[in-house]
Simulated scan of single mutants.
Amino acid sequence: MYVKKNEPSHTDDALTQLGEDLRGLRRAQGLTLEDLAAASGKSVSFISKIERGQARPSVTTLQELAGALGVPVGWFFETDGPVPADERPFVVRANRRRKLSYSGLTSTDYMGFEDHLLSASLDGQLALGISTYEPGGNSGDELYTHMGEEAGLVLKGQIDLQLREKVFRLNAGDSFSFAGDIPHRYSNPGDTPAQIVWANTPVNLRR
């Protein structure tokens, strides 16, 4: 297909979006270019070029970057065909939610729960997601903290929200909010899956 000079192609658009996704995810995890370079074994200049849409990473490189960031490599790929350019910055379709993993981000083992990102972008001040906790699942054995604020709504099942020494038993329809610097932890005490929709501000995926 002929492309006019200086007119972006669909490939250019894809590289630009890939770079934006990588930069947004890196920043949301509080990592510098140097941090990601050290964790992935890639150079700072190469990662910077990827983030600016000026370099095409191989699948192997994406796997290494994904591993360093604690996400599956599928994070960087569409799951059901291309997303319309005017839709992607604002809308996340149910079949295109991106899965979040926390392995490698902390020393704490996260057991029996899974996060999916509902936000269309990680470049803003708000992250929205949905967590599913299997029976007995939890966010880790230890309480943890982060910057900003956190709020959520229990969609189904039961959740025990621990804030410092206090544990609150939450049922479907119950909601919560607290400052992220309060040590906290989630767990599912029930015998059916539990689900929470949550929001963090500013964006911080190390919830």
Rank of each mutant, 00 (worst) to 15 (best):
P89F: 00
T61H: 06
A94Y: 12
T106G: 08
R93N: 12
F113D: 14
V44C: 07
T61F: 10
G112S: 03
V59P: 07
L69N: 09
I50W: 06
F90P: 00
S58R: 02
G53Q: 05
T108H: 13
R97K: 02
P89E: 00
A68N: 02
G74D: 10
A94G: 11
K99Y: 11
V44I: 13
R88P: 02
T108P: 06
R97G: 11
G70H: 02
L117Y: 09
L69R: 02
A94W: 08
V91Q: 01
N95D: 08
S119D: 09
V91R: 02
A55F: 05
R93V: 01
G74R: 14
R93E: 01
V44M: 12
V59I: 14
E51W: 05
D115I: 12
R93M: 03
A68T: 04
A85Y: 04
G74F: 11
R97T: 06
A66P: 09
G70Q: 06
P84H: 09
L105Y: 13
V92P: 13
A85Q: 03
R96A: 08
E87D: 03
F113K: 10
R56E: 10
G53R: 01
S48L: 08
T61Y: 03
V83A: 09
V71K: 04
S103D: 14
T106Q: 08
G70F: 06
F77M: 02
Y110D: 15
I50S: 04
L62Q: 05
Q54P: 02
K99C: 04
L105G: 14
P72E: 10
G67R: 15
L62D: 06
A120M: 04
E78M: 09
T108W: 14
G104Q: 01
S101A: 13
K49F: 09
M111T: 14
S43L: 09
E114P: 13
I50C: 02
D80E: 11
A68L: 03
G53T: 01
S119A: 13
S58G: 13
S45K: 12
G81V: 01
L117I: 13
G112H: 12
V44R: 15
S48H: 05
I47S: 11
R56V: 13
S119I: 10
K99N: 07
G53M: 00
F76S: 03
T61R: 02
